[in-house]
Design a protein around this nucleic acid. Structure first.
Lengths: 192, 192
DNA sequence: TAAATTCCTCAACATATGTAAAGAAAAATG
DNA sequence: CATTTTTCTTTACATATGTTGAGGAATTTA
């Protein structure tokens, strides 16, 4: 059954009833994205989110000058999506692209939200998930990005995404930190 | 009844049943804070959140060098709290301080969360509130703080907090933007 | 209202980061 | 395996922002 790894992760938050799991599993569709392929494109109104089974996505913003800024990475076990655009049914300001060949379980986000109305345990999961990933985990970074220098930010990246430094290109790290590859090289230089 | 303005705001998100409102209203306590007084202190494990009826709070981080960085402002109609610390029952990394004499309606956050288990309409409110304030509204700033220069950030501050520029000191704006008052002055200079 | 305090601006200099371009190293491609 | 492309580092210079300190303006306090 494709959803086993999925529900293992989900039930780290809240234990679900069998009927809730059955309803949710009926929404899941296995898909794969080759490196470089996009799961969400800028300007598209996204419907689905994607649980990353294997691989890596990044969520990118492209400035008016054509520079790419990476907002998040989504490695294994994370649910990737352009959630604000999905919730508001508006065009996504961000793209989500595979940095490695990536296999996912996709589902329709509004169909999921309907399940949260039908099943109190899914509502409880959704609340716990938002509290964890949108409130608690983000708190430290809201300050650091506006206050810390690039070297400090780099060290915080290493802590936030353990192991990812071996998997992504330097210019992706720079794009995540909001600095140039030149500046990132200077950080490595000063660390020697 | 003290909760009238409160429930007017709340029901912009989800209409509540009378019993849900009665249970919630029983948690509310009216309080006032003089300018300079703190609602939450660093190191304290916070229990309450505060709906701002009149006045203004700021949520501050104090760096190891003693500099203050302002994470948010909470003007009228916003619910102020150090939510991650409240949720995790850990010491708050932030203080919340009145920038003006401020009157609030406080309530225990976990008691509120219990109401979300008891009343599906309160769960629906909580979901809608988190989606709006923790997901949708924050999205643009997650990029801008790591990419934009100080002048752009200042213009985004003006848009995000209309009218606040007349109510707060320049050094508070600088602390919000993550720059020095000197740099903020340069922005005003270049705008002339 | 006078005194004290805080706020704001500005100047001079220091540091952090961006830009552009070049070349070397590494990876992808045929 | 040779070629092409991409990635990474480095240099030189430009710009943005921080630091310190001074002085005047505005606000608060007595």
């Amino acid at each position: 059954m494709s959803g086993i790894i999925f529900f293992q992760k989900i039930e780290n938050y809240v234990k679900l009833s069998d009927t809730a799991k059955a309803d949710w599993e009926a929404l899941l569709k296995a898909k794969t994205y080759k490196r470089g392929e996009s799961f969400v494109r800028i300007g598209q109104v996204p419907r689905n989110v994607a649980f990353v089974v294997k691989g890596l996505f990044s969520q990118n913003y492209v400035t008016d000058k054509g520079e790419t800024v990476i907002k998040y990475f989504f490695p294994e076990g994370r649910i990737a999506g352009s959630i604000p655009a999905t919730l508001t049914k508006t065009e996504s300001l961000f793209e989500i692209t595979a940095l490695e060949d990536t296999s996912v379980l996709e589902y329709d986000y509004h169909a999921f939200k309907n399940l949260a109305v039908k099943h109190p345990d899914i509502a409880a999961f959704y609340i716990a998930y938002m509290e964890k990933h949108w409130i608690i985990d983000k708190e430290p970074y809201e300050i650091s990005f506006r206050h810390d220098d690039a070297k400090t930010l780099y060290n915080e990246f290493l802590k936030k995404y353990p192991g990812l430094v071996q998997r992504v290109k330097k210019h992706h790290i720079a794009a995540y930190l909001g600095i140039t590859p030149t500046q990132l090289s200077r950080i490595f230089l000063s660390a020697r």
